[in-house]
Each structure stands twice: as structure tokens, then as C-alpha cells.
Design a protein around this nucleic acid. Structure first.
Length: 808
RNA sequence: GCGGGAGUGGCGGAAUCGGCAGACGCAGGGGACUUAAAAUCCCCCGACCUUAUAAGUCAUGAGGGUUCAAUUCCCUCCUCCCGCACCA
């Protein structure tokens, strides 16, 4: 019976379970290491081969750090609120809780079959009232700090999902969940004031060990831009409006203004003769989704309102237009148009015959032809003439401030976070609406506010959730006054639970507080966080925001939640396309495990290529890791005859006789450690394969001093087979807590070094030289090794331990 | 359009600080073992040249440059992937 992964893996998984091998007990004497996966939404289709990629990488790190003497926190849980289970409930009537439970069971079974060393005693589920009690508790903290407010404004609405969405969920005018179009809808909603943290969310990125691309995405999403607010008056209508501009220095070149079609002032300023045209345009703009509005980007449209504003710099009259290229939800929904120095304004001005004035000199082409948006020297600008752009900006800022016409200001692309959903399967928002129209938060002692049972899960589409239909739940009493009150019927978005789950893992069973201060101060923040890039401006931004609020409240001691972030690359199907049901190229890990076992699967996924890279799956490729594990097994076993058990080979308890083998072991110990620290798991596996080959060359009985470190080094990657071998080597304790082998630096250097000898850049010979040889000696044997055709070398370059380059 | 990343054998990839390109694996070819096959073990496996060997020449998307030496640094261009995209 050769290497039999199914029997070995089942045995050790049961052992780990029975012995609670991976239960984390805080040990203050040890340094801590918190390594976390982005916890999954337990979908009905179970795990696909992409999930275990990141999980395997973190598991290898967790096992390695444990062996290096760290107290490791490596937990797993379920981000289980969300639409799929609810949509399934609408179709079938199955309670989302039931769907969630069975999906979680399946996910958990699959994860356990891969041998991950999670501390399952810390498992959490965001839909558990014991968990969401504290999600609601944090919401109350936000509310009481003035960071959660109710608003009535047009927001992104997905008509498929029948719910409002956050800006982050509606990128490109498309619903993040279902891919359907997003329209604007005016509904009552809860909003979190993430914009109050915009500057800190940008600034604190500096000290994070995150991929630069993710930092850039967050910076761009927050979209900070410095500029000025400028007040424009419309004397005929006795009205005024503000614009935001990053180029106050070009105010003298502003020749018209544009309001967003939704701008509240439009009705008031539009002259009667233009009213019909303006209204028609506004209707048209309203009907367009954001998607359509950006799709039509090539051709600018707009309508003149008939009103004129006064340029505060030069007193000139400027026509006021409306156009859908100006967005209501950025800046103040109005712009001053400087066609000479802004491409969009230039296109618009050309189309509608509006004047173009040059106020910044520096463009290569006249501004009548092409806008010049770079920096230069002001002209035609009164008191700004002759100033460079940056000075002109400052001077105009001062001019506006002095006269009360505006001031320097900062604008952000980031919007406040629309936090309510008109759906059932989410955390109820713990707020009461009183008869007098005011609101009152529940007290902490009234939490959790349980999600009630409903008869129908169908979303109403009216801006109320299915909860609104449950009269007995909605109509309640204010517990302190006994007066009638109505409950808030919106629920929280799926992102709520994941905003703080990494904190709950520190102290998951605490029923007095979300986590104890003591535990939080030990674990601090996540040392290594691995997950998909798709959360760049969603979860990762929201969680950072909540963490900073918690920091300000003094209940966490760190400024940032995730110190180091790594994004694993997508695993594509064998056809090189993204895995999807419709393409039929999805690989189910269960099938792979059946044929090759979890250890081979883990090694294969890591061996595919660099963790961060996008790479195609290839089931045939599993043969390599599988054969490697069989060879590893045969280092220890002689194959039994038909039907017989393999015989465990004798082990020599003597020093390693072969100095080369001994050096190979020490070099590999160093390399595997380095590689794991840097998450270069593919090259670590290659090194283990080489070590296996080297040990196989040693005659039986093979030295224990070679076999043991091999098993130890392999164990984070292939834990089951290594537990088995470790036990057969005579150990009673799990290898998971065995110490990591130590290398002797002296044994990582070669005694004899081979040098390549180059003549004019081409390798013409090879020499072997003792390790510490002096340059003169190296040079001498190099010259003796090649034929220079009687010429004298012009120059000789010696690269220690590598090569000698002779120039003739 | 803007920003970021990448391009290396038939394939996945390696080369960590400018120093011998192709580690490790898959696929393929040959051999050993076997009645035979599977499994296993050993050898070969970028292209060209050469009867074959030895040797040599070329080769890391293309072209140029710096250098004794370039997959690695610089310039120009091509292709692919990812992100953003009227943000005033």
C-alpha cells in the first residue's frame, strides 16, 4: 500500500479536532502574530479552487509562525448576511437562516478537508444575534457621535435588487451585486459620515504595507482635490450659487456657468421663455441612468436658462446653462466654465458658440483651437497678470476671502456612505421613530434588536423593507417613557458585519462587551491580511473608517486595522478564462481532493506561480506535487508487497556523513524561511523538491538529521503527510508545535566555488576555487583556464563567488 | 484618454542587489524493469549549424542606448491584463 492520502488526511484531521491542536490561547510570553483571511460569504455553490488559494497561503504562514514560537491567531468565520440567501427565500420560501446554516456547514466541511489550521473555537457568523448585537452597538456609537444620520436625497437604486446602494456598490452605473442598471431614486435613508474621515483615510495609507495599486485605488476613490469655492450672483433672480474649482486662477477666463440639471436653483432662475426647453432637458436627464449619462459622454448637451451670473473677478455677465456633464453629487453641482483652459468646457463652448478667452499663457496652440490646462503665467487677468499659476491661485483665494466671495476649500469625490437597505436579511437598525417626529436610539441594554420573522421576503420596492409589513414589530413603545414609537424598518448593508469581525475574533465569546480591552491590546491589529482585490474600495475602506471611529472612541489602540495586505491573484479555468458556471470551466476542489488528496492540492495551488499573479488552472499539473509527495513518502518507506503495509525504513541516529547533503539541508532551511516570510511559496516548494532528491540519494538507513528537518520544512505546506511521518519518526506530539529547524550560517556556504571565466563577455571556461580564495589567486587560475591568443588583458573584473570577466 | 502591472522553451514558471538565462514542475521523446501494461527509476528535451560528437552562433515582445557584462537600468514602439474615466 503506497502513500494513501485519504486515510492519512482523515486520521490527522480527526486528531487535530480531538486534541484542539489549533486552539489559540493567548500567551503573553510569546510574540503575537495575527494572520487573517477575508472571511467568505457562504454561497450555495460551495468552495471553488480560487477560495483555497489565499487560505492555503495564510495557513502556511500560520503554521510556520507557530513553529517559530509565535502565538498565532488564525480564525475563520462567515459573512452571512446578504442577498443570495434572501433571493432564494423569495423564490422558495426557505428561511435565509436555514439556507445560511446549510451553506455554512458545507463550507466548513470543505475547509476542514483541506487541513487548514483555523481555531474553530473562534468561529463567528455575522447573522448570529450574539454577533450582530455588537454590530448594532457600534452603530449606536456612530449615531451618538453624530456620524450616522437620516437623509432624503437621490441615491443609487438597483431595480433588480429593489434596494438602495452605496456609491462604492454602483461603480460605472452598474449594480455591484447583480450587474443590473442603477437609477437615481429619492428615498429616505441612513448615511454614515465617512467623509469626515477622508483626510485621515488618505494620510494613514502611508504607513501601511499594502500593494501600491490598492492604495492608489483608495486615494483616487476618496478623490481629494484642493481648490476654491466661488460665489456667483444672479441679480435678475436675486439668487446666488457656489461653484467649486481647482483653478481659481482662471476666474478671469470664466465665460459662462453650468448648473447640474438637478440643481435646486434651476426653477428659480430660468426665464419664462426658456422654461419649456429647460424642463424637457431636466426630464431627459432624470430618466437617464448614470450609465447612460456617461455612455453619451462623447457628445455634450445642454440648455441655456436665460439667466446671467456676474463674474466676481471682473463684473462681467456670464450666461448660466444647465448640462448633464455637471454632476449634482460632486462639489456644489455647479461650475464656472473656463473654455480656454478646460477641455470639457472647451468642447461645450465650441458646440454652443460661447466665448473662449486666454488667461494663462503657456499653451503651444491658440486656446481657440485647444484648451490649455497646464500651468503657466496669467494674462488678461487684472491683478493676477504676470503671476505663475500657483501664486495666482493663492492670490485669488485671498481676494475672494477678503470680499466674502468665496474661499480656498477642499472637495472630495468620496460621498457619505449610504448605509440602509430596503431588504430583509440584514441587521435591524436600532432606532425608534417617536410620534413627535424625532428619533431615539435604543439603549445598549435593549440589544440585540432581533430580526423578526416575516411571512413574505418580497422587497416592496417602495423604499421600505419587508419588515415594514410586520405591524406588531414596527409598532412598539419607547421603553423609557412608555410612549408609542415605530421601529426603523431598513436594515444594514452586508458590509456592516465585516467592518469589525477581525476585532471580534480576538474575543469571540464575550457577552459583556464586543471585545475586552485586554485582548485587543495583546492582538492589536492584523499582521497579515490576504484576500481578493475586489474589496479595494468597499470592505477595506469601510473597515478602516470604522476602525478609526473606534480608535477615536478609545476602544481600539491602533489607528489601522490591517497592517500588511496581500491580494491573491485570480485562478483562471484551464481555458485561461475566468471560471464561471456559464463557461463550464469551474473546478471543484472536492473532485481534486478525491484523486490527489489535500496535501497535493495545497502544494499544487502554491506551486502554480506567485501568489499575487493571475494564473490558469491545470488539473494535469497536479501529477507533479502528487509524485513529489509519493517520493517523500518513500524516503521513509519500502513499498510493501501486494496488499501489505509499507515497511517503515530504519533511521540512522548518526551525524550526516555527506557534507554536501548537510549543507543542502542548512541552505534549504534558510531558503524556506526566507521564502515563507516573503510569501514566495512557489520557489519554496521547488527547494523542497530539490532537497527530497538530495536525501533520496543517501543510502538507507538515512540519517535522522536529514529526515527530520525535511519533514519539519514540508509540514506547513503538506501538514497531513508530515504529521504521519513525524509520528512514525517517534514523536507523540503534533508537528504543528514542533520547533522550526535552525540553520548554521557556516554550513550555508560552499567550500569550493565554481567561477565562470568570461572573455569579452562570453563564457570561455570554468574554474574551481576554494571558498575564501584571494582575488589574486582567482585571477591567476582564471587566466590559466582560457586561451587569450597571446593578448594582454586590458581589464579583469572579479565578482566574488560568481565569475571572472577578462577584457582583451 | 489617464494610472498601474506584465510580455522568458510546447505549457506553468525560476533567475532575490547589473554577473553563467530557462531552477522546479507539466507535457513530450528514449531507455531499464515487466510475458505485457500501469507504477517506478535513469537519460534527453529553446532555436540554428554540424553525418554525429566536440565546439560555435542566435535567443528573455520589437528596435536602439549605457556597461567588461542587461530578463534586470535608460529611451522609442507594439501587445495583453487590471483599475479609473465628463470629479470641475
Amino acid at each position: 500500500m503506497p502513500y494513501d492520502p485519504s486515510a492519512i488526511e482523515a486520521r490527522w484531521q480527526a486528531f487535530w479536532n480531538a486534541n484542539q491542536t489549533f486552539r489559540t490561547v493567548e500567551d503573553r510570553a510569546k510574540p503575537k502574530f495575527y494572520v487573517l483571511d477575508m472571511f467568505p460569504y457562504p454561497s450555495g455553490s460551495g468552495l471553488h479552487v480560487g477560495h483555497p488559494e489565499g487560505y492555503t497561503a495564510t495557513d502556511i504562514v500560520a503554521r510556520y509562525k507557530r513553529m517559530r514560537g509565535f502565538c498565532v491567531l488564525h480564525p475563520m468565520g462567515w459573512d452571512a448576511f446578504g442577498l443570495p440567501a434572501e433571493n432564494y427565500a423569495i423564490k422558495t420560501g426557505t428561511h435565509p437562516r436555514a439556507t445560511t446554516e446549510s451553506n455554512v456547514a458545507r463550507f466548513k466541511q470543505q475547509l476542514q478537508s483541506l487541513g487548514f489550521s483555523y481555531d474553530w473555537s473562534r468561529e463567528i457568523n455575522t447573522t448570529d444575534p450574539k454577533y450582530y448585537r455588537w454590530t448594532q452597538w457600534i452603530f449606536l456609537k456612530l449615531y451618538n457621535k453624530g456620524l450616522a444620520y437620516e437623509a432624503m436625497a437621490p441615491i443609487n437604486w438597483c431595480d433588480n435588487c429593489k434596494t438602495g446602494l452605496a456609491n462604492e456598490e454602483a461603480v460605472g452605473g452598474v449594480c455591484d451585486r447583480c450587474g443590473g442598471p442603477v437609477i437615481k431614486k429619492n428615498i429616505r435613508q441612513w448615511v454614515l459620515k465617512i467623509t469626515a474621515y477622508a483626510d485621515r483615510l488618505i494620510k494613514d495609507l502611508e504607513n501601511l504595507d499594502w500593494p501600491e495599486s490598492i492604495k492608489t485605488m483608495q486615494r483616487e476613490w476618496i478623490g481629494r482635490s484642493e481648490g476654491a469655492r466661488v460665489k456667483f450672483k444672479i441679480p435678475s433672480a436675486d439668487a446666488e450659487f457656489n461653484v467649486f474649482t481647482t483653478r481659481p486662477d482662471t476666474l478671469f477666463g470664466a465665460t459662462y456657468c453650468v448648473l447640474a440639471p438637478e440643481h435646486p436653483l434651476v426653477d428659480k432662475i430660468t426665464i419664462p421663455a426658456k422654461r419649456a426647453e429647460v424642463n424637457a432637458y431636466r426630464e431627459e436627464a432624470k430618466r437617464k441612468s448614470d450609465l447612460a449619462r456617461t455612455d453619451l459622454a462623447k457628445d455634450k448637451s445642454g440648455v441655456f436658462t436665460g439667466a446671467f451670473a456676474v463674474n466676481p473677478a471682473n463684473g462681467k455677465e456670464m450666461p448660466v446653462w444647465i448640462a448633464d456633464y455637471v454632476l449634482m453629487n460632486y462639489g456644489s453641482g455647479a461650475i464656472m466654465a473656463v473654455p480656454g483652459h478646460d477641455e470639457r468646457d472647451h468642447t461645450f463652448a465650441k458646440k454652443f458658440g460661447l466665448p473662449i478667452v486666454e488667461v494663462v499663457r503657456g499653451g503651444a496652440v491658440p486656446v481657440a483651437e485647444t484648451a490649455f490646462s497646464g500651468d503657466g503665467i496669467n494674462i488678461n487677468s487684472g491683478f493676477l497678470d504676470g503671476l505663475a499659476t500657483s501664486d495666482a491661485k493663492k492670490k485669488m483665494g485671498a481676494f475672494l476671502s477678503e470680499r466674502g466671495l468665496g474661499e480656498p476649500t477642499v472637495s472630495y469625490k468620496l460621498r457619505d456612505w449610504v448605509f440602509s437597505r430596503q431588504r430583509y436579511w440584514g441587521e435591524p437598525i436600532p432606532i425608534l421613530h417617536l410620534e413627535n417626529g424625532s428619533m431615539k436610539p435604543l439603549s445598549e441594554s435593549e440589544l440585540p434588536l432581533l430580526l423578526p420573522e416575516v411571512d413574505r421576503y418580497q422587497p416592496t420596492g417602495t423604499g421600505e423593507s419587508p419588515l415594514a409589513a410586520i405591524d406588531a414589530w414596527v409598532n412598539t413603545k419607547d421603553s423609557s417613557t412608555g410612549r408609542p414609537a415605530k421601529r426603523e424598518t431598513n436594515t444594514m448593508p452586508q458590509w456592516a458585519g465585516s467592518c469589525w469581525y477581525y476585532l471580534r475574533f480576538m474575543d469571540p465569546a464575550n457577552d459583556r462587551e464586543p471585545w475586552s480591552k485586554d485582548r485587543e491590546q495583546y492582538w492589536k491589529n492584523v499582521d497579515l491580511y490576504v484576500g481578493g482585490v475586489e474589496h479595494a474600495v468597499l470592505h477595506l475602506l469601510y473597515a478602516r473608517f470604522w476602525h478609526k471611529v473606534l480608535y477615536d472612541l478609545g476602544i481600539v489602540s491602533t489607528v489601522e486595522p490591517f497592517q500588511k495586505l496581500v491580494n491573491q491573484g485570480l485562478i483562471l479555468g484551464e481555458d485561461g478564462e475566468k471560471m464561471s458556471k456559464s463557461r463550464g470551466n469551474v473546478v471543484n476542489p472536492d473532485d481534486v481532493l478525491k484523486d490527489y488528496g489535500a496535501d497535493a492540492f495545497r502544494i499544487f495551488e502554491m506551486f502554480l506561480g506567485p501568489l499575487e499573479a493571475v494564473k490558469p488552472w491545470n488539473t494535469k499539473g497536479l501529477e507533479g506535487p502528487y509524485r513529489f509527495l509519493q517520493r517523500a513518502w518513500r524516503l521513509f518507506h519500502e513499498e510493501g508487497r501486494r496488499g501489505e503495509e509499507d515497511r517503515f525504513l530504519p533511521v540512522a541516529d548518526l551525524p550526516i556523513a555527506d557534507r554536501e547533503l548537510e549543507k543542502r539541508i542548512h541552505k534549504t532551511i534558510r531558503k524556506i524561511g526566507d521564502d515563507i516570510e516573503k510569501l514566495r511559496l512557489n520557489t519554496a516548494i521547488a527547494a523542497l523538491m530539490e532537497l527530497q532528491t538530495a536525501i533520496a540519494d543517501a543510502p538507507v538507513p538515512r540519517p535522522r538529521a536529514a529526515l527530520e528537518p525535511f519533514v519539519q520544512l514540508l509540514s506547513p505546506f503538506a501538514p497531513h503527510i508530515c504529521e504521519e511521518l513525524w509520528a512514525r519518526l517517534g514523536y507523540k506530539q503534533s508537528i504543528a508545535h514542533a520547533p522550526w529547524p535552525v540553520f548554521d550560517p557556516a554550513l550555508t556556504v560552499d567550500d569550493v566555488v565554481e567561477y565562470a571565466v568570461q572573455v569579452n563577455g562570453k563564457v570561455r571556461g570554468r574554474i574551481e576555487v576554494a571558498a575564501g580564495a584571494a582575488d589574486a589567486e582567482v585571477q591567476q587560475s582564471a587566466l590559466a583556464a582560457v586561451d587569450l591568443g597571446g593578448k594582454t588583458p586590458k581589464k579583469i573584473i572579479i565578482i566574488k563567488g560568481k565569475l571572472v570577466s577578462i577584457v582583451i
